[in-house]
Design a protein around this nucleic acid. Sequence first.
DNA 1: ATGAAAGCGCTAACAT
DNA 2: ATGTTAGCGCTTTCAT
Lengths: 354, 354
Amino acid sequence: MARRRQAVTIKHVAADAGVSLQTVSRVINNEANVSPEMKLRVQASIDKLGYVPSIAAQRMSGSRSYLILAINDRDRTIADWRARLGADWVDQMLLGGMLKCAEHGYRLVFELVDTHSDHVERALLGAIAALQPDGIILTPPHSDNPQIVRFLGGQNIPFVRIGSKQNGVGISLSMDDEGAARAACRHLFDLGHRRIGFIAGSSEYELSQWRIDGWKAAMSEFGVSCEGLLEQGDFSYDSGEMAARRLLQRAERPSAIIASNDQMALATLEVAREQGLKVPKDLSLISFDNTPIVRFTQPPLTAIDQPIAETASLAVELIIAAKKGESASSPLSTIRAPLVERCSVCAPADRFGG
Amino acid sequence: MARRRQAVTIKHVAADAGVSLQTVSRVINNEANVSPEMKLRVQASIDKLGYVPSIAAQRMSGSRSYLILAINDRDRTIADWRARLGADWVDQMLLGGMLKCAEHGYRLVFELVDTHSDHVERALLGAIAALQPDGIILTPPHSDNPQIVRFLGGQNIPFVRIGSKQNGVGISLSMDDEGAARAACRHLFDLGHRRIGFIAGSSEYELSQWRIDGWKAAMSEFGVSCEGLLEQGDFSYDSGEMAARRLLQRAERPSAIIASNDQMALATLEVAREQGLKVPKDLSLISFDNTPIVRFTQPPLTAIDQPIAETASLAVELIIAAKKGESASSPLSTIRAPLVERCSVCAPADRFGG
DNA sequence: ATGAAAGCGCTAACAT
DNA sequence: ATGTTAGCGCTTTCAT
């Protein structure tokens, strides 16, 4: 393949408009100190020649690469893809992140990093050195990985930690998991449920605890005991199955269950079916995440939506702002996670759900 | 944000190893004319310092950017993401494409382009000029868009056209849609079906015709008439619903239906339910694509798998090979699309499926 | 087999 | 408000 040069460079534009390179550069970057007429003249040449700046050259000279790195967990992502179960998280990140990037002339580069490897830093360094991104988006469970966070803290690159509430290095950004769990619990309570079970997610993810906290807070607010109503899962279908079994074979079985993700809710649905319990008549069910699948179960599940696209979009905005503002102040934003009502919830058969 | 320089550059390595920049460059690029000892010495310095080449600098001087652009249809992709139905196509492309890229030190950059816009060329030029990718992967319906293909043909960048069989500019790569349709039809025939209906996809996609061709070829081979058994859809759920209705309200209704994608199969399933037809007892159903959703319908659908990951992986390989070989010969590869058996197919109630 | 010099396209720093 | 100069990190070309 022959040495492929840029077809139209800033030089061509400068020559065409009869100005210096610097002036063209100023117009491209929307900088001050360009007279309106000059700006128009240069822009006309740019349009005429179809000039587009080379990000490689921009990166070489200036400090911007117009690349934002979205880092996801390698094993989990690949496993989801392989299983061909869909990877809603990825899709929604791309939706929110890519579109926002495009608005600002940036590009989102999706990268997989193996968390559990000893070489996390190596992997990160590789991506950073190769791409020189203007910002990095971390997703759970990376967001609170001390090794990763510490390393990035020393790199002088703005980074957003999605799903983290730990203030400190980087910009923390999380969805309102606790509030959402609380709202789900209240929804059930208002319908008359009292024994509301909860299946927790993997403790590797901080948000698991927030979801538990929300449920506990709500229960305590209602003056209802949590005794025997909390079971540990790890987000996998199997763990959900076991947790649901434990919950449903109790003498005083719950009249409603909140599962910390969709897979565990699916498992709960299956266990209920096995035990001859109709959902929602005999058991109400609310899941977290609202991935595509919950619309196609029987019955379709009421679920708490995880607003990933919105979050990714905000992450990009915060990075670009940090880049501009020359400083990355940490607003610790929280994004609301709404409850999507479908058909897996109703009032308990015997009021006060015993 | 302060001007952020590369932490470790080729200069540091050269100094550390006590050699010239050129020698380091040769080692990085695995070029000839480096003595084994020298190579080892340089590699040791690279490892010690944790040096990773900057792709921006590599692109600036040489002809490689180590970036491969995967171009997808903007409207459709965003619509799928928005609907939160999952976007299996995207996930599978990333799976196959990213992993293969990573093997070769490349990165896949996912890009959305609006086909229907008058400014397709502008959009493409923008991406090409900005990124200077080493190759481009086109997906349907872009793969056969004459405007796009013509434009890329003049860009001196290897590009793969997934889902295209038209030889000519670029490298064509397609899944065996015709063979798969034929196999699906044979599967039904062998079980005793004779009246096998077919719901076609949007004619904007060439593969729609291939799928029809496969079905027609099989029917003709069996000596069965296609009369009244073909209905046009456009891949949307609604179009599938209408097509299924037309098919199923015929006096001599089909005992089996092949739908050109999963959404239309879902619609067919729903129409059957409405009309009191049990699947598979009263109606056998096979869909195309095998997206995540077909495992969760009642019953789970037998489907033809679209091996997108495998195809994307091969696309990347072909691009890298073309780049290396300094020429892009067009092998016109075809990838097998296997039938995944689930529960939506059985022998017809009355043998010879009238 | 190794090295030196030139230059890729752009922007920061410094003129004017 | 505009222009000039130097250099980013690397590879290409051309020495040796």
